[in-house]
Amino acid sequence: MSDADRPDFPWRWLLPSLALLLCLTVWGIGIYPRLPERVPQHIGPDGIDAWTEKSVGAVFVPVFVHAGNVALTAAVAAATLRMRPADEIPPGQRASALVNRPSTRASAARTARATLQLALCIGLSLAVTCAVMWRTEPDPHVPAWLFAAVLAPVALGVVLVLAAAVRDRRERRK
């Protein structure tokens, strides 16, 4: 497959994750001076069960995680688009069994978009976590809805990726 035949990188699907990253960064910078000297380090099933001294590293962990997540998923999406789809491998040429290739270029584009949507969903989960971690009052109580609010966006993102994979499998069988 030539470079001209490859689908373009789906930048408009990456932009929401980048916008969320920017919003989390601005929010964190704005709230940082007002945070107490001890901030949550770990949130367990019974609430906040570990605290740490306020520092840029401790406060911005969710932002750093989201930045790494965005970079990794963008790289995976780009690699998916660069991969030769199964329908373009010449007859008789063996393809590595270690690579789960998309069936077609259209499938590669769908998979790349779904991967970028998963990045956004993970970022939304991290934003919910920030809402608890970045409270200006040192309160160990964690709202009952937190667990569901953190998991729901990730579950949605996983469903989107699985839907793209199932559609790819169906196309492959045809």
Rank of each mutant, 00 (worst) to 15 (best):
P36K: 13
E37R: 10
R38M: 12
V39H: 10
P40R: 12
H42S: 14
I43P: 04
I43C: 07
I43A: 09
P45V: 13
P45G: 15
D46T: 06
D46P: 00
D46Q: 14
G47P: 01
G47N: 03
I48Y: 11
W51M: 08
E53G: 12
K54N: 03
K54L: 05
K54E: 02
S55T: 12
S55D: 03
G57Q: 07
G57R: 10
A58H: 14
A58R: 08
V59N: 04
V61N: 01
P62D: 03
F64R: 07
F64V: 12
H66C: 06
G68S: 07
A75F: 11
A75K: 01
A77I: 03
A79F: 10
T80H: 06
T80G: 04
L81H: 06
R82E: 06
M83W: 13
R84V: 15
P85G: 05
A86T: 14
P90E: 13
G92C: 09
G92T: 09
Q93D: 10
Q93I: 15
R94D: 15
R94T: 15
S96T: 11
A97V: 13
A97P: 02
L98A: 15
V99M: 11
V99F: 10
V99P: 04
V99S: 07
R101K: 14
S103I: 00
T104L: 07
R105S: 11
A106Q: 12
A106W: 03
S107H: 07
A108V: 03
A109Y: 14
A109T: 04
R110W: 14
R110F: 11
R113D: 02
R113W: 10
R113E: 12
T115V: 14
L116D: 02
L116V: 04
Q117S: 05
L118S: 09
A119H: 01
L120N: 05
L120C: 05
C121N: 07
I122V: 13
G123D: 06
G123R: 10
G123A: 10
S125W: 06
L126I: 05
L126S: 05
L126V: 03
A127R: 10
A127Y: 05
A127E: 02
V128R: 08
V128Y: 06
V128D: 01
C130L: 09
M133W: 11
W134Y: 13
T136S: 12
T136F: 12
E137R: 14
P140M: 08
V142E: 05
A144T: 10
W145A: 02
W145C: 00
L146D: 04
L146I: 00
F147S: 07
F147C: 01
A148E: 00
V150K: 14
A152E: 04
P153S: 01
V154M: 05
L156M: 12
L156D: 03
L156F: 14
V159N: 02
V159P: 00
